[in-house]
């Protein structure tokens, strides 16, 4: 059963992250992000409010989604990240390109 949900509204989409974004969930997220951009919604907010853990394969899926979104004229932003996710983003310096916002609403403004 999929734990990754997508809500689209025109060019914008909100993708809900899985509880643990590790190597079992990362390929599915990668596919969902690619499909979302391919269907015309390259402005993506990944809602990580329900994601307690991310590993390097999960980061890879997010970076892949970011590149795909930017190539289509959009961007990918993170919302509601947990302590573990924020720590991992900082340790890898990826917070500079995968911008975390407090809420989905904050992340959805001013594309």
């Amino acid at each position: 059963m999929s734990t990754i949900e997508v809500r689209t509204e025109g060019r914008q989409a909100v993708v809900t992250g899985p509880p643990r974004l590790n190597m079992t969930a990362a390929p599915q997220l990668r596919e969902v992000l690619a499909q979302t951009v391919a269907h015309g919604s390259p402005q993506i907010v990944v809602d990580l409010g329900g994601t307690t853990f991310v590993d390097s394969s999960g980061l890879g899926a997010l970076v892949g989604g970011l590149k795909t979104a930017r190539q289509a004229g959009g961007d990918l932003r993170l919302a509601a990240v947990s302590d573990q996710v924020m720590t991992v983003l900082t340790l890898t310096s990826l917070h500079r390109v995968l911008r975390p916002f407090p809420t989905v609403e904050d992340a959805s403004r001013e594309w």
């Binding site: 590993d55 390097s56 980061l59 890879g60 970076v63 340790l91 310096s93």
Partner: peptide, 20 residues
Amino acid sequence: AMPEDTFAEDGRGLALASVA
């Protein structure tokens, strides 16, 4: 070490474990 390319999609695993 972390990958030099910020946009690399892999190669961070051992580096992340190292710093943790």
